[in-house]
Design a protein around this nucleic acid. Structure first.
Lengths: 252, 252
DNA sequence: AGAAATTCTTGATGTTGATCAAGTCGTTTT
DNA sequence: AAAACGACTTGATCAACATCAAGAATTTCT
């Protein structure tokens, strides 16, 4: 409100070496010296608000981005107006890897809530990785991991039932929240039912019904975006498919 | 039959610079000098026969492989005995990128017919790429392209109808054969209906019925593995979805 | 605060593609 | 050549999930 500087967070220096996400992010496996050099090329801009685009399909590609807080949805606007949600991204996750191919973003990224990111100019990252073997190695691993995750998703969409898809989805968030030091069983989802359905290849109504069913079966409690997983082991059984859920279900 | 050496293909030196696939493969964008250095680390082994594994999920990762002739299916054996086909690979295509992540193959690769490959020891490739910026750049692009292809596949499996899936599949082969100097409209598929169905998330019976239907509609002629595309533009219309096929169909 | 617009839920109905079952064709084995 | 096997096709039936429709709960707008 007042123009007088009191405490401005803008002046607080953020650095990879102090970042709680370092172990989840690019710096993983680098020496402190290497992290320092990486830190020098990273730009930290203002936060995005819900609905802001980080980039759009077709935009020229400059930087990879690491989410540092908030969450992001990536999607590819497909020919007939609709969209395909490609992923939901949490702090520590790197986005934009698909754009290296031809210097042009092939999909769009939009903030699902107030979101901060680190921008890593790719040409500088590339130069740096040429003189830092550990960074180059880390980059190859990261790109490869992304491929591995995509192929897991292919199996999900190719073979799994609606029930298995939603269980997989919930456990993915559970694991990722846990990794980040949050509760594995009590969290808020920042995306709508519609977006979940789109991502999982299901209709909104199916997602809604499944939430209700899971709740009726005491697998979880859900109220709007707030989810509490009550029986994680049985959710894992559902993910396995083959109705093996029944076998682990305590027979009364 | 005789042990006397007459003409042995084994003695014929193969080199990237003479390879007709160079423009589709890693050497793309490298200077002749760079190709020479890359060539030095590549191993060319004996061909695989139909059904031979190039590697299996869980195997230690040593090398990326480029198909030079024949074709390969990659698949991930999933928990309950079944498998998910991840891709079909033609000459010039690189496989094994998913294994960089943790030095271990996450999926299996099997020859669909007599198949030859170049092996590229990854640790050597990595060292080489650190001193050859153009090779490093090419590697990043390649990995990024793989990610882009996977996300296209996600859209296919998430949103498209059976008809759209098969049309997309056929056109993908059409384009890839064309790129390689073969007919875009007359080719042999090296995989079974079962494998096509698995890849596309469809039952064998559905694939079979669709081939029949496409033939009845004069989109193609098919006899066992031999496919002749008769109306490629209309196949593209089908891929677009939205029944836009009708609009481009010449009204009589 | 009240109205309008979204988002989510729930029910009824419909359609696509899976599953089950049988038969044909082609290839391999003996 | 006959038999056995596997790949493919075709038909009949079924189930899972989409679509359509309406109402409830929230959020946003004015």
């Amino acid at each position: 409100m007042t123009s007088r500087k009191v405490v401005s967070f803008e002046n607080i220096k953020v650095a990879c070496k102090n970042c709680s996400l370092a172990t989840l992010c690019l710096p993983m496996g680098l020496t402190p010296d290497d992290v320092e050099r990486l830190d020098c090329i990273i730009k930290r801009g203002r936060p995005y608000h819900r609905g802001d685009h980080l980039y759009r399909g077709g935009d020229k590609f400059h930087s990879l981005r690491v989410i540092t807080s908030g969450s992001v949805k990536t999607y590819s606007p497909n020919e007939d107006g609709g969209e395909q949600v490609l992923g939901f991204h949490l702090p520590g996750e790197l986005i934009g890897l698909d754009a290296i191919q031809d210097d042009c973003h092939t999909c769009s990224a939009i903030a699902l809530e107030t979101t901060a990111v680190c921008e890593i100019p790719f040409s500088q990252l590339e130069s740096l990785s040429a003189i830092m073997p550990s960074l180059q190695h880390q980059m190859y691993r990261l790109l490869s991991r992304e491929i591995g995750q995509d192929t897991e998703m292919l199996t999900l969409l190719g073979k799994k039932s609606a029930e298995e898809r939603l269980a997989t989805f919930l456990l993915s968030f559970s694991e990722r929240f846990k990794q980040r030091g949050f509760s594995a069983s009590d969290f808020f989802l920042s995306m709508s039912r519609h977006e979940i359905g789109n991502y999982l290849g299901l209709a909104v109504e199916t997602v809604s019904r499944l939430f209700t069913r899971f709740q009726d079966e005491n697998l979880l409690r859900v109220e709007r975006k707030h989810v509490q997983l009550l029986d994680i082991p049985r959710l894992y059984d559902i993910v396995q498919g083959c109705d093996s859920a029944k076998s682990s279900q305590s027979r009364v």
